[in-house]
């Protein structure tokens, strides 16, 4: 944690860390999305997706020995697609679904990461899939799996806002210099 934090500081452009700075206020809204369980539960550092929410209690490791697998799509004989279909199961506690259900790459860690750590990752092309912030914004707006976070199926709290709002917020944040908070 401490080491990542140091890297985050190093990467951070701009002089200001004041919490009332407009860019940081924008970031705060983005952080609420990225750190939301609908998003963070599949941005984990280890091998395991997480479950959490009203019916699942505090975040816990996805049961059934579900693992990341070589490419984030699960393992032979039990891939993500074995249970997660293209759409949400309509049954309460049924598996959520979206095309290409999978875990985010291990370097894109959000689960249990601080606001500053997530912020640094978002901006770091080495850890965000080689994207500019504009490309990140478009990804957030257009990707089907990302969109799932706002329509997560019965019994699950959606991520705050919408894909379009998140896209707009990221654009504004980028225009404001994409500042990252401490910690």
């Amino acid at each position: 944690m401490r080491r990542l934090f140091a890297i985050a500081l190093f990467l951070m452009p701009g002089p200001a860390f004041a919490q009332d700075e407009p860019g940081l206020i924008e970031w705060e809204g983005l952080y609420r999305v990225f750190s939301h369980p609908r998003c963070a539960n599949c941005h984990t550092e280890d091998d395991h997706p997480r479950w959490s929410g009203a019916h699942y209690g505090e975040a816990r490791i996805h049961p059934f020995n579900v693992r990341r697998g070589p490419d984030g799509f699960g393992n032979p004989g039990m891939t993500c697609r074995t249970c997660h279909q293209e759409t949400n199961s309509p049954v309460l506690h049924g598996p959520p679904g979206s095309p290409d259900w999978h875990l985010a790459p291990q370097e894109m860690v959000w689960f249990e990461k601080s606001s500053g750590e997530i912020c640094a990752q978002i901006k770091d092309p080495a850890r965000n899939g080689g994207k500019t912030l504009d490309e990140v914004a478009v990804h957030l707006r257009d990707d089907a799996l990302v969109a799932w976070g706002w329509e997560p199926g019965p019994g699950r709290e959606p991520a705050p806002g919408s894909a379009e709002e998140t896209y707009e917020a990221l654009k504004r944040w980028a225009e404001l210099g994409a500042p990252c908070p401490q910690g």
């Binding site: 059934f64 020995n65 579900v66 693992r67 697998g69 393992n75 032979p76 004989g77 039990m78 074995t82 249970c83």
Partner: peptide
Amino acid sequence: IPNPSDADIDRTMGG
């Protein structure tokens, strides 16, 4: 995986 290890078996059959 024609010759699975115990860990391979666990990763498939845990479901």
